[in-house]
Design a protein around this nucleic acid. Sequence first.
DNA 1: CTGAAAGCGCTAACAA
DNA 2: TTGTTAGCGCTTTCAG
Lengths: 342, 342
Amino acid sequence: MLRSTIYDIAKAAGVTATTVSYVLSGKGSISGATRARVLKYAQELGYRPNLIARSLIKQRTCTLGLVMPRISNPFYAEVAEAVERLAYASGFRVFITNTHENEQLGGDLLEDLIARRVDGIIYLPHGLPLYGIQATLASGIPIVFCIWEEEEPEVSPCIGFDFMEGGRLAAEHLLALGHQRVAIVTDGPSVDGIKHHLRVAGAKSALIQAGHPLDPALLCLGDSSVERGEAAAHELLTLPEPPTAIFATNDLMAIGIITAAWKLGIHIPRDLSVVGFDDIVLAAYIAPPLTTIVMDKSALTEKAMNILFSMIEGKQVTSPPLLLPRLVIRGSTTQCSKEYRA
Amino acid sequence: MLRSTIYDIAKAAGVTATTVSYVLSGKGSISGATRARVLKYAQELGYRPNLIARSLIKQRTCTLGLVMPRISNPFYAEVAEAVERLAYASGFRVFITNTHENEQLGGDLLEDLIARRVDGIIYLPHGLPLYGIQATLASGIPIVFCIWEEEEPEVSPCIGFDFMEGGRLAAEHLLALGHQRVAIVTDGPSVDGIKHHLRVAGAKSALIQAGHPLDPALLCLGDSSVERGEAAAHELLTLPEPPTAIFATNDLMAIGIITAAWKLGIHIPRDLSVVGFDDIVLAAYIAPPLTTIVMDKSALTEKAMNILFSMIEGKQVTSPPLLLPRLVIRGSTTQCSKEYRA
DNA sequence: CTGAAAGCGCTAACAA
DNA sequence: TTGTTAGCGCTTTCAG
């Protein structure tokens, strides 16, 4: 494998490595003649700079780490694509890593990224506790947390999202359509380990406020996947007294719900209204198009990257205000057709 | 930012850097006492190895590059997740990069990855020409091409997929169901710039063989996105003599087609059969579940990674046989209900 | 305009 | 068991 160094070029061109370095970086002042000669040999020898060596001396790798639950979830994939694009625009490359929501793995990943001397990290923890990574945080590496939804103390900087309000919006929309028996399908291993904690809390509060508090039997647990979304919906829809609307705390589960309904011959939205959360691109293009809560991924990634770059430059930063949710009404929700006695 | 080196530890522990290096790597033979002392100070100083320095001397970064069109397409996201998982299992981290099907960008990305001295590259080019990266290939970096669908000369090693057979399978399924007027929605800027070239060729040949050659008016161009899939389907379905079945050369477009039909009040599969290509996870969980051609992503990524690792170890490798397509019949296709005169 | 020299943090012969 | 030394490929003062 042809792997030449500036020394090889230097020797060939009859100059010293310093000179080569200068012409390659366009820094010092070099005569046109030597410049041309150096360039010629660089070309000829198929020279490619060794960014590893450069990183070592510059104390900067122009590399970012992106830590997220799983890139196969379109929401995260869309975020990753945006992050990669913005990083590229600044000459950075990004390591993407999946925690699979495993705490141990998440911590290891972080430590490894630091060992690789990434210049900064974007961390979308989704249900991962903070206490396991205290030491990591203490390392002082620029790291920005995004869409934190835990109950633990605020960490800074953090690009937050008003999940509670999002849940409320979803429930209020359903309530306004006359739905009184609404179910919630969310992510979490147990009712007191709900990962989409705030979304559920927001929805519940709206339900209570409207005088139709959540029937505990209508709270289903999943894991943010379509599979579990479908399974949960199947359970819900075969109940003696099924819900007339379901709020899924992410779009993937909402899609699973639509499919479950389809299989049971339940028409959406006539017999069942469904609202999701995230607004993945696909949400607008399924049948029926999904009513959902929009998380503005562009705003999220832009803010996160701006803050991260500021930190890398050593600037002092503060968390921006919470990102606000927005309801987008599409074809999966409509007026409730059934009457239920309270 | 606390960033200690082995020298800091050495000084603190009253030994030399070599000793520290040995205990940290567990290589030389070090007395229990010094080992303990070194470890203690390493801990105390919050030492984290500098993998950049290590890479420089070892001539190995334990880093891979993954270049693909766009990770927001679930098919690629699923591949990326698998690649990342396999890489992680071998202590590798991966740079993921999106070409956005831009030839220039694709070439730059490759060069940059080489400059960063990744140990190997997985390249899923999708419609990108080879001639632009000859120099890159000549660098000798281990690189495995996956699912190449161009007409240019074979490159080795390459994990190929029998796209032609996949297209044929799709068309034959439709034909067997009695469909005679089948449309194709594919990816490409023009009819002679079709990126899913082989899939289309396979389908066409089956159609011809059955005596129902493709009506040129029923070949629609898109760009692998749901949006364009929906737009194409809208055109097709509002034709005076619409198709009774549509073969979309990827799942995203197929989903768009289903949505277009839904919006037009056309029932799937009763009034229109749809078959996709890829078998993204979501395909099985939309309404109706999508009949599609399965590309085995596990097999693909496993083979690709095995070969890549072999190359990295300096072994000689050859391309494996083409991966075979499989048809999975779900709810989006059924018997044709209309009669058309030939 | 160009060169000499030091050093980024680590590893690995080779000595002691 | 531990230390000495050189060097991975590059950048960057400081001289000349």
